[in-house]
Amino acid sequence: MQAYWKRSQRKLAPWLFLAPGLAMFALYVIIPIFQSMAISFYDWDGLGEKIWIGTANYVELIDDDAFYTSLKNNVIWLVLYLLAVPAGLMIAIFLNQTVWGIRAYKSLFFFPFVISQVVVGLMFSWFYAPNFGLFYKLIETVTGDGVAILADERFVTYGIIVAGLWPQIAYVMILYLTGLNNVAPDQVEAARLDGAKGWRMLWYVILPQLRPATFIAVVVTVIGALRSFDLVSIMTNGGPYGSSRVLSFYMYEQALSEYGYRMGYGAAIAVVLFAIMMVFISGFIWKMWRDETER
């Protein structure tokens, strides 16, 4: 026994070290993904008998207006959320100086990211609040007519996205600040001697060096956009009339809220969201895999 252990400990050790973490991860993350896929073919209220209904949940989805509203909102979220990347870069460039107190400025600019989305949501609800909210007042002064952003189907999703962008920009900013800190000074000096400056410098010299930061910024922003749930739940609860729902919220509403316990239908929505995210996740993993095997 002991001899066997001595001989093969280097073969066994990695699996022993992996076992507890991998077991937990499989139990709570990997296996549930497949369980959800299975549940999506059933009609189930979470307590009683599961009834096999084949693809009926998916067929129902195709004719569900609320599903398309959520899907459309998800696309809007994704596109607008990506604005966090250039916005974060701009702020990072603005703050990348060495003047007195700059460190304090950098951490205060980063501050929104540390706060819970629940609190961010409440802050922006107050900001948009009809009749006395700061933003409402501002619009009222400019146009003479206030707009209740969160009660207006036309603006509500955009209003929530702005709230989401606030911490996201802070996150991207800190990624770029770190990136800018590591830009090779000799390359910048050489480019300067060649007469590069401003936008051309940024585009041809700085951005290529910021590639790793940009990659991570895009990954976290895309994932963040598709995961958006907290702000929708806090600020509007999907309203008015379900116009600010996103897939993640709609799934929750169907599966686990006062509207009912349709676990099967919820699972089907989750599978669709998962499929959309898998497209992006596969892309990220493919790139990371390439980097990893090249080294």
């Binding site: 993904i33 369980q35 959800s36 994932i223 749930f229 995210m277 996740i281």
Partner: peptide, 13 residues
């Protein structure tokens, strides 16, 4: 990176 919702029903269960 997966969406939380795909885990929700089985994890609650």
């Amino acid at each position: 990176f997966v969406p939380f919702q795909i885990l929700m029903v089985p994890v609650r269960d």
